[in-house]
Design a protein around this nucleic acid. Structure first.
Lengths: 343, 343
DNA sequence: CTGAAAGCGCTTACAG
DNA sequence: CTGAAAGCGCTTACAG
């Protein structure tokens, strides 16, 4: 038979601890797990001896009987995206507090790789999976995931999914905040540079932004759709600067697009915020370092990660299957890219 | 007794597959593991049935007997640091190729948290640990880690550790590349803005830089030490710009410091590269986006992650305990912050 | 409060 | 080529 001792721990098993303490492994196990009904003195002795022997429980053996792995899975499209790095940190910190480790997977938003990750995570008995999106998955795959029976929490999914839990930033409030900032600074005729219509998060930001602006008498917003990247923002801005017609500010759907606008502005000789004001959305790391620093709506990325783990905890401890939905707060970060209009 | 079936997989066990295939679990196991000595037809049948039943082996059970977890641990100071996000991606990709998942931990370079992570990873039977640094750990802790018997690979540790494997960028070559770039563009009197003397990586870059510069007749470098951050670079640069004495270029120990120099330049009205040239080291994401884009020496972060996993593979498959050391190549990335001097 | 024992679901010598 | 069986190291009802 295989005799592998207890690799990585010097081979000390519960058995060894029990012997040294003069009890059976049953009592030893109970002592170490702080269970009820073991004499305080016995418990203390066992614990001390376990310590001395550097006993480490074999998680495989424990998992085999308890079914618990003390691990959660996190699948993001790409950890190099600073948004997800922030989220991951929030996840890790919160998971650590509950004694769990996190297994990280990158999916590149590719359905096949994503499904592979899910399977691998399930294989390794992740107690829950926190994932970026499920959008690229077939209905069939989604059902398979749901059937796995472990809590799934989706990041950045607007609206309330009926089978999965979600956590999302408050896009409505964010859109409103951006509009109020512009209004407060005297802007009335503005451009809303947003992403493709099918992009649900950007659409909600846009809708809230427009609604808030237009609630103000005499305000007008010109909405432009483009690709939601720096490049998209750049190209749209070149066009915009050519056809400027009294607009005094641009609000973009995310910071990346705002950076594109900035680049186009430099090339076109348009000065921000002197000639035109600019407000973004996200507050990525770079936003504070551009010239001028970008006024934007901050998405609490780290908190999104934490919130996801909190949902997992709730679901796990209650045993409930009912998805939980959390909307995390956003806030305005005023830097220097929005000018106060003096009429 | 506990009856937890096979949670997360619909409860199908090897036993179930074996029964459906009309064999014993021994044969079923061998078929699924593609072992020798099982009739091709039997094997095919078992595999087909396992597929149909959506059989997923219970990793706990398997791990209990094999001792293998198919997971590696990665401990970085902070995943939000884009350097480590890149490394992590390299690790994940390479690990995936070998069928392993990665458990991610953040240590904040804090000895206690770091040790906790190591222990947790060992607990969960990580087959190897790739970690940022071990510098903050006591000798005792380091020995404990070494004693665990799993391969450990250290990131960014210069020189050859005798007990741990390492992977590091070629700092010597990087320093040389930076110097050659300046020399080629006609710079002879330059400033080397480096970090604290005890910072081994920065010191090596600096030493190689100086050596290469001074091998050129008539070249002279003025070395200045400061904190190796943007703020450090900023503060040092303010001082530098006040006392400029014919120097035509600044080479910094990393990009962060270069960004600090850029900021100071804007404030001091010094134009880069017109008034002074600037070359960094690292090539972080931001480096391509500054104004002007920064000429720098690229560290292959992603490759560092991959190399670490390759070392793990080698060590694991050979069973060798001898540390492996890898130096990954760097390259010059010429952008616009270095001007060609026309005498 | 403690022990004897079953059982978690696998893998792998050992026979045949 | 296949089976019967031991064993990996735990946890937890069941007795006492």
């Amino acid at each position: 038979m295989v005799k592998n001792g207890n690799p990585g721990t010097g081979g000390v098993t519960l058995q060894a601890v029990a012997e040294a303490a003069g009890v059976t492994i049953a009592t030893a196990s109970r002592s170490l797990n702080d269970a009820y009904g073991v004499h305080p003195e016995t418990k203390a002795r066992v614990q001390r001896i376990a310590e001395e022997l550097h006993y480490k429980p074999n998680r495989f053996a424990r998992g085999l009987v308890t079914g618990r792995s003390d691990m959660v899975g996190l699948i993001v499209s790409d950890i190099r995206n600073s948004y997800f790095a922030e989220v991951a940190r929030g996840v890790e910190d919160a998971a650590l507090e509950s004694g769990r480790d996190v297994m990280l997977c990158n999916s590149d938003l590719n359905a096949e790789r994503q499904m592979k990750s899910v399977n691998s995570l399930l294989d390794k008995r992740a107690e829950a999976i926190i994932m970026n999106s499920v959008a690229s998955l077939s209905r069939e795959d989604q059902q398979k995931i749901a059937a796995a029976g472990v809590p799934i929490v989706l990041l950045n999914r607007p609206g309330r999914d009926t089978t999965f839990s979600t956590v999302n930033a408050d896009n409505d409030k964010g859109g409103r905040l951006a509009a109020e900032c512009l209004l407060r600074n005297g802007h009335r005729k503005v451009i809303n540079l947003t992403g493709p219509k099918k992009h649900a998060n950007l659409s909600r930001r846009s809708t809230a932004f427009i609604k808030t602006m237009e609630a103000q008498r005499g305000a007008r917003v010109n909405t432009i759709h483009t690709i939601n990247t720096m490049q998209g923002g750049y190209e749209a801005a070149i066009e915009i600067f050519r056809n400027l017609n009294g607009e005094t500010a641009i609000a973009t759907g995310n910071d990346a697009m705002a950076f594109g606008v900035m680049r186009a502005a430099i090339e076109a000789g348009v000065r921000i915020p002197r000639d035109i004001s600019l407000i973004g959305f996200d507050d990525v790391e770079l936003s504070a370092m551009t010239f001028p620093p970008l006024t934007t709506v901050r998405q609490p990325k780290y908190e999104v990660g934490r919130a996801a783990v909190e949902i997992v905890q709730q679901l796990l401890s209650s045993g409930s299957k009912t998805p939980i939905h959390r909307v995390v707060d956003v806030e305005l970060v005023e830097r220097s890219s929005v000018a106060k209009l003096t009429k």
